[in-house]
Amino acid sequence: MNTVTDVITQPAFPAITGQRDTMAVTKLDTPLEKTVGNPFVEKPRMTCRDVFVHYGESCAIKDVSIDVAGNEVLAMIGPSGCGKSTFLRCLNRMNDTVSSCRVSGEIRLDDMNIYDASVDVVPLRARVGMVFQKPNPFPKSIYDNIAYGPKIHGLTRNKAELDEVVETSLKKAGLWTEVKDRLAEPGTGLSGGQQQRLCIARAIAVSPEVILMDEPCSALDPIATAKIEELIAELRTQYSIVIVTHAMQQASRVSQRTAYFHLGNLVEVGATEHIFTNPKHRLTEDYITGRFG
């Protein structure tokens, strides 16, 4: 936690990253932007370098380099279609399911290049968990929803241990008191906010290091949203969280750093308070002040 705050308060780095050369890219709809602000941290949990994502012929992510620190919440904002969700889904290779999608560049989790041919996506997705836009519990009982991950990964040796994992996961997700008497009931019978917390608990149950959240509150009412935001703040003490959101207030409330994406470019990265109070780039400023987006 200290590392993050240290880094973001450091003004030492030059405003425009000079370390990397702009790659010669011909097929781009918009000119390549240089990222404003410092996208790197001292002790990163994940490092992304020169990431390009193509869907068939069109380029969705253009030369994005950014770090994810340990125990931070990194918010990714930007107008619809800017590629923030696409980029998020690169971090645990969920884009593999889209056949036309190609990812180039380097994304490392600790020291492992996750796009290396030798990397197995199954354990990777256990290390980098994901929470989706729409709550998507399995049509099974609340217990089975949580227990599924640990079961397939063989994380527990017996029923007692599994019960323990289910309980701690639900407690961490702040759902235990609400559902402890009805673990056998279907997870789909919960309210929208509860379902989303169930999905968070499900992601936590396999002990990930990073949790990716793709607009986790967009389908929820303000009260449920507030609960999820509280939960994110608590989870930060144990996990790195990358959250994509459309709600700028949410980004400002939950995150320590914010990255602004525009048409596949990472336009600006910085400490959340700086991005929202004093954006350097004109596009960021326009978006934050509501001139477009």
């Binding site: 969920m94 989706f132 599924y148």
Partner: peptide, 23 residues
């Protein structure tokens, strides 16, 4: 079958075949 179910299963680290047969 909604794709969100497949995503949910893949997201917790189920393999392709586990996703299909379990969910």
């Amino acid at each position: 079958v909604p794709p969100s179910i497949r995503e949910a299963a893949l997201g917790v680290g189920a393999s392709k075949i586990q996703t299909v047969f379990h969910h």
